[in-house]
Write a protein that binds this DNA or RNA. Structure first.
Lengths: 335, 335
DNA sequence: GAATACGATGTAAAGGATTACATTGGTGGG
DNA sequence: CCCACCAATGTAATCCTTTACATCGTATTC
């Protein structure tokens, strides 16, 4: 592997000049630049990143951790984040933490060891090893939270108004005449789940339905929702609001397994608007999140911090949208 | 940020000793080790990765590129790869190339610049900039192909027998009495698609159905399959074999949209066995791939190359399996 | 008790790039 | 014709760690 010294020797210049040709071409005479570039091509020279990082203390990389890479919801967020990072001259290192705090900590180490310049994390948990960093550096800590929002963590974040989103879902069901509504939540430890539940309760309360809600806890996966839905159907609900599209799929599957039809007997509404949601059978009514934009804005916030340009806002709330498809319909007439 | 020099000074030893305490604790006296570790804790010292990489020429990282991160199929492969990498002391850098050769090349640069020690790529295209590397280093080039297999690329790979898998799918449909079978393939540029098509033709030929096949090209996405299925249904097929589960979902959606039922009027069989496939409505019959194992073996192959222990086999073929669920059934009786 | 060996630790040289500062040569102004 | 200045380039320190080799002291062996 050719080094900058080889290039300098072959081009008859110093390493400083080679370095300048590569990073600030304007400061080098045209003829020299051309000669150096020729040698660079000929030797197929690539700067050694470790050496550069060591010298500049800048890795030009952002770490993006997701709690579950198999959840298609995150795919779009990741795409948006990568685009924004590329625009700003950063590469994205993607980490799948599988909701495992230990793995989260391992990835967090990359920041501590300066392997990456900053971190965007999509879960709800700031790795323990970074709490000290946030406490020490405050607003200039290069950490941004995406999708979720926990004020106590003390880092900027990008998210939708989850309470308002789920309130919209309930309003939609109530409008269709549903009164016995089942809710399949996420684990209460996640703020996103708490916020959505708060929105549900608020909306239900507005219609005097708060005490008629049928609550069941899921884990955002189809399996858990399938089981929860079976129980709720037995309780006689006519509609199910699931805190994720994946759970909605599990719920629809349970409706079918119970010999009922969706939306004829039981309406189902999800949350997220996965790319596949419109191909579900029936096509899924859901609350859409601006997934790509969440990723993009999160990275932009982070890059702002890295560049030292304090952003005006540290909490970005983006718009959600109710997408009406075929999985919700009028409540069946009581017999 | 504390450096190894600070630690050495505070512990009253040389940097060499500190380094040894961290990387080969056995070579240091117990008392010294304890004292150094105390200082390490107190100063919250973390070795600078760039400096280490620069010195050792080893990044302890593997690059894993996937053509489309939003395809849930890859999630399980990624998981398996990460596990194997962790076991071998490597971290995984994940890249989403979106089928874009330019992005593929950008990621490939990471290998050229020694940012990572090796590459596992899941697409079918070896980035152009790496062809020279393979040509030069041959079997010791730290590159492995996963899921797909193109002999002309000249790198080790891990995959199933795609032709046999799709032959099984056809056999299954023929057994159920189907004669008018629609096939929704992938783009012919992908070897995986070509192999699967070859298997289809072989099996169909065995039953004298080769000329009755209805072929349509898809792009592995639900959307393309939805359109293709619509056309095939109009042609009167009683069964659809889709080269991916995602396309099968699109096909099922098209069956419903045509006012027909699956599997009553049209059976649908997919390929991959996504985690969600059993929650589709109807639950999807499909050819399962050992996704996690593909990722794991690919990384193991790569680590073998990196360690210089030439592996016995450079092509690993894993077993697939036909999963019978509810989306396929007997062919309807002709009127 | 001397010689040997070995365990523990230190010294210092890489590893490859960036960049502050120094140097050189040429241009334009007076 | 000289000086000041600037553009172009070079010199060399620096980033932080690892590790080959050197050193030292103690235990082992004969």
């Amino acid at each position: 592997m050719a080094t900058i010294i080889d290039v300098a020797a072959a081009a008859g210049v110093s390493t400083a000049t080679v370095s300048r040709v590569l990073s600030q071409p304007g400061r080098v005479a045209e003829a020299t630049r051309a000669r150096v570039m020729e040698v660079v091509e000929a030797l197929d020279y690539r700067p050694n990143v470790a050496a550069r990082t060591l010298r500049t203390l800048r890795a030009a990389k952002i770490l993006l951790t997701v709690p579950d890479i198999s959840n298609p919801f995150f795919a779009s967020v990741i795409r948006g984040a990568e685009e924004a990072a590329r625009d700003a001259g950063y590469a994205v290192v993607l980490g799948d933490t599988r909701h495992d705090p230990e793995v989260e900590d391992q990835y967090a180490e990359m920041l501590s060891r300066r392997e990456v310049d900053g971190l965007v994390f999509l879960g709800h948990r700031l790795p323990a090893s970074l709490e000290a960093l946030v406490a020490r550096e405050g607003a200039s800590a290069p950490i941004v939270n995406g999708c979720e929002y926990s004020p106590e963590i003390g880092v900027p974040s990008v998210h939708i108004d989850n309470a308002a989103g789920s309130a919209d879902a309930i309003e939609h069901l109530v409008e269709l005449g549903h009164r016995e509504i089942g809710i399949i939540t996420g684990p209460p430890i996640s703020p996103i789940s708490r916020d959505r539940l708060a929105g549900v309760l608020r909306a239900a309360d507005r219609h005097g339905l708060k005490d008629r809600l049928h609550l069941r806890e899921g884990d955002y996966g189809a399996d858990s929702a399938h089981r929860a839905a079976r129980a709720l159907i037995a309780e006689g609900v006519t509609a199910l609001f699931c805190f994720s599209d994946e759970m909605a799929l599990g719920a629809i599957s349970a409706v079918g397994a119970a010999g009922l039809s969706c939306p004829g007997d039981v309406s189902v509404i999800g949350f997220d608007d996965l790319p596949l949601a419109r191909f579900f059978h029936p096509a899924l009514t859901t609350i859409a999140q601006p997934k790509g934009m969440i990723g993009r804005r999160a990275v932009e916030l982070l890059v702002g911090i890295l560049r030292g340009t304090e952003p005006a806002e540290r909490q970005v709330t983006l718009a959600h949208e109710l997408i009406r498809r075929a999985s919700t319909g009028p409540a069946p007439n009581p017999q």
